[in-house]
């Protein structure tokens, strides 16, 4: 009986020491906040925030170098989530970032398209199908509306068309409460 207790205690002490030592010796400096911010960002890697991708933007937010309102693909819902995570006030899209736009998808004017594949390479979510010298087209359900394909098109045949509300994309609106100063 005493022997059993001794053996188990010895095991526990040994393991505790090993794990304690490993925790100090193999410590990894990592900011868990970056992971959580990165999880909220839409991962379109579009670069409209001014950073080369979603993770760099997440790192910049975590180190207070960037505001939370710079991610147009994330939309207002994304900013709201970031504000909730970071415990800061919600703010609308800043003047220096892209303004709020109605959600839209890219539409290729197929009569004008010359099949240059430039927009295919620009699309971060592979929502454009087509091949060299073949007409391209956008898979509307995949398009995130990031507008990255508009600039590379040499014949300007890509237009952003807002999608109106319909049965399949309608959502409850966020409640808007107007704050009034207390008297």
């Amino acid at each position: 009986m005493i022997g059993a207790i001794l053996v188990m205690s010895l095991l526990a002490v040994l393991l505790g020491l090993t794990l304690g030592y490993a925790a100090v010796r193999f410590r990894v400096e990592e900011d868990p906040l970056v992971e959580r911010i990165d999880a909220i960002l839409p991962q379109t890697q579009c670069g409209q925030c001014g950073f080369p991708g979603c993770r760099p933007y997440a790192e910049a937010i975590a180190s207070h170098q960037a505001d939370i309102n710079r991610c147009p693909p994330g939309g207002e819902a994304g900013i709201r989530k970031l504000a909730e995570l970071l415990g800061v006030e919600f703010k609308p899209f800043g003047d220096d970032a892209a303004p709020t736009k109605p959600k839209s998808v890219a539409i290729i004017d197929e009569n004008v398209c010359i099949g240059c594949t430039l927009c295919l390479q620009a699309c971060p979510v592979d929502a454009i199908v087509g091949a060299a010298k073949q007409m391209h087209t956008v898979i509307a359900s995949e398009c995130t509306g990031c507008e990255l394909c508009v600039a590379p098109c040499p014949v300007d045949c890509i237009h952003m068309v807002p999608i109106g509300e319909n049965v399949s994309n309608w959502k409850w609106k966020y409640p808007v409460t107007i704050l009034t100063p207390a008297h």
């Binding site: 095991l11 393991l15 193999f26």
Partner: peptide, 17 residues
Amino acid sequence: VVIAGIVGFTEMFVRWA
């Protein structure tokens, strides 16, 4: 107990290495 300890140690080591 030992296997749980090894798993914990491995996790820390792999994370570091």
